[in-house]
Design a protein around this nucleic acid. Structure first.
Lengths: 341, 341
DNA sequence: AGGGACACAGTGAGCGCTCACGCAGGTAGG
DNA sequence: CCTACCTGCGTGAGCGCTCACTGTGTCCCT
C-alpha cells in the first residue's frame, strides 16, 4: 500500500515513510507530491505494520477497577482524551476482582497486546503490589494509588489533606469531635483519609470516637447512619465518600435526625449528584480529570524516556466544597426522638 | 521468537503456529513438546505480528459518549468483560462532542487501528447517523441507540415499554394525570420515553400536561421541580432519568412539597444511588450489563459472519422498581405552602 | 582545489507471525 | 496393486511497514 503511494508520487517507499513520520530531510515539493498521492489513494497507514516494524505501537493500556464508579470513570475519560491528544490509542482492561494477581495478569495481557505503557487505576493496596510484581520492562504509572506502591510512579490526590480539610471544617464549626465513616481497610485512599481525620482531631486535642467502617456503598452508609442516629452525642460526621454519605443522610432522615441542625455531614469526592442531595452535601472535591491528565503525562515522559520528571510522585490537591449539610454546633445532645430499632 | 520455540521443540515454525492456533493435524506428543518449549522460553506471541499476517487483530473498538454516566459506563464494562471472555481486546475511543461527524471520525480512527469490529455506545440521534455514514466494510453494532439508526444492527432497551411501565404505575395509583420531565429532544431514548408516556396517557383517556424539558442533569431536574412545586394540580411526575429525579426531589423538598404524600415521582435507570434518595426512588431499571453483553455477542456473530442472527435489532426489556417515592393519589390540590419564589 | 559536512533520496533486509502450498507415509477402496 | 484420500509436518513467501545503510549532489571551509 505504501508502494502504491510511492509509485504514484514517483518516489521510493522510504520517502513515503519519511513523510509519514515527519522526518526532516524531505524537500517540500517532494513532501507535497507524496501527501497528494496519499490523498488520491485515500491511503491509511496500517498501525499493526508500523508497530511491528518500529516496535512501538503508539498504544497505552489502562487497567481499571470498577470503571462504573465516578472516580475511575472520570480518570479513564481524562486519560483517554489526553492520550488521543498525544497520539496514543487506548486499550482497556478492567479488573473483575482487585487483587495483586489479577492486576498482574491484566498488565501482562496488555503487554501481550504490545502496548507501549500502562496506567493502572486501582486504589487498593493489593493492586499496588500487583503492579510492582510485574516484571516486563514496561513503563507503568499508577493513578489513585496512594504512596504505598513501592517504586511505582504514582499520581494521586492528597487524601490526607482532603480529610483534614473536612475534619477541620467541622471542628471550626464548634463541634466537640468528629465521627468518621471510613472506606474498606485495604483501600489506600481509605487509610489516608482515616489518618488525616485522626491528625486533625489530635491537633485539636479532642478524642477520636470509634471508627465506623463502610464499604463505599450507599447501603453501608445507611447502616452507619442508623448507628449514629442512636448516639445522641454525635453531632458531626466525616464520611469517606459521597455515596456512603447519601445512605447516611437517608438513615438520619428516616430517624428524624435533622441535617445540619442536629448533625453536620461532610462527604468526599463531590460526585455530580452530591449538590442535590437533601440537604446539598458539603464535600471534598477531587479533581479526577487532573489526575488522569497528569498520569498520562507522566507515562508519556517515561515512554519517551526523556529527562524523566524527577518527580515520580505527583499529588493533586483536593478542595472543600461547603454546601448545606454542615452548620455551627448547636450545643447539647439531641433528644432521642426514635430509638434505633 | 517462534523460531526459538520451534528449534527447542525440534519442529518447524509452522507447527508451532499450528499449536498456537489450535489447528487440528498436530500429533498429541508433538503438541506437548511445543507447549513445553513455550513454557520453558516463556514465549508470548506477538499480537501485532499475528494481526498483520492474519488480517485479524482480535480487537474490537468501542466508541462511547460520556462514559462517566452510569449507563454508558456499565455497558462499557459489560462489553469489556464479554470481549475478554470471547478472546478480544478492547480499544476505546470516547467522544468529546456527540455529533455525526465525530462519531464517524472515531470509527475511522478505530478502523485505522485495525480493529475487527466496532460497538458504538451513543444514544443520540446524530450518532446513529454517524454510524451509517461510515463506509468501511467493518462490522458495527450500535448499543443504546434506539431504532432510528437506518440499517445498523442495534441492541437497545425498550424505552417505550419502560415509560409505559412508569406512567401506568402512576395512573394505577389513582393520579388524574402524569407530568413528564423529558431528556433532550435529540436523544433517541428521550424521544421513546416521551412516546411511551403519551401512549399510556392516551390509553387511559387522560389529557397530557405540557412537556417539561431537561438535559439529564440534576440541575435541570431541580428547575423542573421548582416549576412543578408551583403547580398545585400536579400530583404525579415521571422523570426521564434518576439524576433529574434527584434534582426534582431536592426542589420539592425545598418548597415543602412532600414526596410521596403530595407528589409521586418515578425515575428512570435505577442508578445505585436511587435507592437511597429521600425518599427511595421508584424507578425503571435498565439492564445495562445485558445490553453490553448482547451487543458484543451480536458483533462477534457479525465478525465471524456466521449464520448471522437474523435478528439485527435486539431489545432488552426494562422493569419497574417500586420504592417509596410513589403513593396513592390523596385527592385534592396541594395547599400552596410556599409561593414559587 | 580538495575534502568534510549536510540535505535529500534510494536499497535491501527484516519485524514475528500466518497462509498457501508441497510432500511424505498410512489407510482404504476397487 | 494402483489410485484416492487423510494425517502430520515442512518450505517459502509475504503481511505493510521501519531501520540501517548507501549514494548522490551541493555548499562551505581551509
Amino acid at each position: 500500500m505504501i508502494h502504491d503511494v510511492a509509485r504514484l508520487a514517483g518516489v521510493s517507499h522510504q520517502t513515503v515513510s519519511r513523510v509519514l513520520n515527519d522526518h526532516p530531510n524531505v524537500r517540500g515539493t517532494t513532501r507535497d507530491r507524496v501527501l497528494s498521492a496519499m490523498r488520491q489513494l485515500n491511503y491509511r497507514p496500517n498501525a499493526l505494520a508500523r508497530g511491528l516494524a518500529s516496535r512501538r505501537s503508539r498504544t497505552v493500556g489502562v487497567v481499571g477497577f470498577d470503571t462504573r464508579l465516578f472516580g475511575p470513570a472520570s480518570a479513564l475519560l481524562a486519560i483517554e482524551q489526553a492520550a488521543r491528544a498525544a497520539g496514543y490509542a487506548i486499550t482497556l482492561s478492567s479488573l473483575a476482582a482487585e487483587d495483586a494477581g489479577s492486576v498482574r495478569r491484566s498488565v501482562e495481557a496488555l503487554a501481550d497486546q504490545s502496548v507501549d505503557g500502562v496506567i493502572v487505576i486501582a486504589p487498593r493496596e493489593d493492586s499496588a503490589r500487583g503492579v510492582s510484581e510485574f516484571q516486563g520492562g514496561l513503563p507503568i504509572v499508577a493513578v489513585e494509588a496512594g504512596y504505598a506502591g513501592g517504586d511505582v510512579p504514582v499520581v494521586s490526590v492528597d487524601q490526607f489533606t482532603g480529610a483534614r480539610l473536612a475534619t477541620d471544617h467541622l471542628l471550626e464549626l464548634g463541634h466537640r469531635t468528629v465521627w468518621h465513616v471510613a472506606g474498606p481497610a485495604d483501600w489506600l485512599e481509605a487509610q489516608e483519609r482515616v489518618e488525616g481525620w485522626r491528625a486533625s482531631l489530635a491537633d485539636a486535642g479532642v478524642p477520636a470516637p470509634p471508627l465506623i467502617r463502610g464499604d463505599w456503598s450507599p447501603a453501608s452508609g445507611y447502616r452507619a447512619g442508623l448507628d449514629l442516629a442512636a448516639r445522641p452525642g454525635a453531632s458531626a460526621v466525616f464520611v469517606a465518600n459521597d455515596e456512603m454519605a447519601l445512605g447516611l443522610l437517608h438513615a438520619l432522615s428516616e430517624r428524624g435526625v435533622r441535617v445540619p441542625q442536629d448533625v453536620s455531614v461532610v462527604g468526599f469526592d463531590s460526585i455530580p449528584e452530591s449538590e442535590f442531595f437533601i440537604p446539598a452535601l458539603t464535600t471534598v472535591r477531587q479533581d479526577f480529570d487532573e489526575l488522569g491528565r497528569r498520569g498520562l503525562e507522566l507515562l508519556v515522559d517515561l515512554m519517551d524516556d526523556s529527562p524523566t520528571h524527577e518527580e515520580f510522585r505527583s499529588r493533586v490537591t483536593p478542595s472543600l466544597m461547603v454546601r448545606r449539610s454542615t452548620a455551627r454546633y448547636g450545643g447539647g445532645d439531641r433528644a432521642p426522638r426514635f430509638s434505633a430499632a
